[in-house]
Design a protein around this nucleic acid. Sequence first.
DNA 1: TGTACATCAGTGAACGCGCGTTCACTGATGTAC
DNA 2: TGTACATCAGTGAACGCGCGTTCACTGATGTAC
Lengths: 204, 204
Amino acid sequence: MATQRARNPRGEGARLRDEILDAARLITEEHGEQAVTLRSVARSVGIAAPSIYAHFPDRDAILDALVDEAFAELSAVISAARAAQTDPLSSLRAGCAAYVDFAIRRPHQYQLAFGDRERNTSPRASATAAFEGLVNSVQACVEAGASSSTDPFGDAIAIWVALHGYATMHASRPAFPWPATDTTLDRIVDGLAGLSASPSIRPR
Amino acid sequence: MATQRARNPRGEGARLRDEILDAARLITEEHGEQAVTLRSVARSVGIAAPSIYAHFPDRDAILDALVDEAFAELSAVISAARAAQTDPLSSLRAGCAAYVDFAIRRPHQYQLAFGDRERNTSPRASATAAFEGLVNSVQACVEAGASSSTDPFGDAIAIWVALHGYATMHASRPAFPWPATDTTLDRIVDGLAGLSASPSIRPR
DNA sequence: TGTACATCAGTGAACGCGCGTTCACTGATGTAC
DNA sequence: TGTACATCAGTGAACGCGCGTTCACTGATGTAC
């Protein structure tokens, strides 16, 4: 692939940065972050590996940029899903569904963002914002009388980790006899956000 | 470490297999599975790398043995924790607590067992047994009148993935303001096993 | 209008590293005669 | 009791690989005079 590549016109060298990022994103999507090497990216773009250094100081900087992208995209799809609903309860459910949908649709991006990397020492602003959105969403359900939660922060944590666990297990153990995603998802959200008296009998 | 090592007496060559496994287990515990290489294991044992081939066909066989060990240990601690309780409700809670405790105490072993490895195509018997134990535990709570669950299998899935999510997130994001483990754990189990009317007001 | 020069967008060869794995071997210990 | 031999428990050197990174460079394009 990309056997001959026209060099960018003078003054447009920065375009290569985007090409590198596009290639790295695609490799991550298809093969996971460990497949993103300077050489694999360079091969995919059609350049020599050292050319990357004009745009990124090292391999980690590329992955860092991809993590930022992933968090931004995740935040965006959650916000959009929430905004499409009118009541707080539907909004909470839609946001959670969007989170899991992203994790399942783009498992390697999700893994890049939420995996146990050393990079995770500094939390991303967009990740923090997304979590606060979840807390607020539970709180809104309480205020609307749809939730009996007395600790939206703690309940949001429970919901968040449960969604995360579902997404990662679902991706890594395809042989398991999973029920439909909606079923498990509703059970998690309803059970952990104080939306019903019992987990198996859900109001809907 | 292990600068001089006495070779095993004649007929006792199989002992080296255990030494290799011990070293690999220790390396996994301390640095994660990616640090387990034939050369790192050999260095740790005090042998030449090719000596490993007399006992394991390749690197993956070592990791496979470690996965078996991890599942066996996890099953054992869960069973022990359950058996120490007399009523079904305490037993369910104790089993879940033991699961998370193992995952937090030995994050790299847990990751080895439940990470998204290609090796996961064939489910381990001990893993299946442990999950069935969880389903039965929820069922026992229903029969004892402690749970209102109408679908123990589905609820066990929800509990399992939530515990998994908590364990992995807790390990990978130490900077997050986590509440006490017991708090979140009880909320997950109670909320998803039909043990209370609302997640924040738990009966205990 | 022509030419010297600076800048830009890259390249190609090479480095040292750790890895899994193969190969021919070594030296101690037991056993058959 | 002595000796040839088989077996056992390993070893040391080497292979090819892909990696991140460094280095000196090339060739096209614009600009100053």
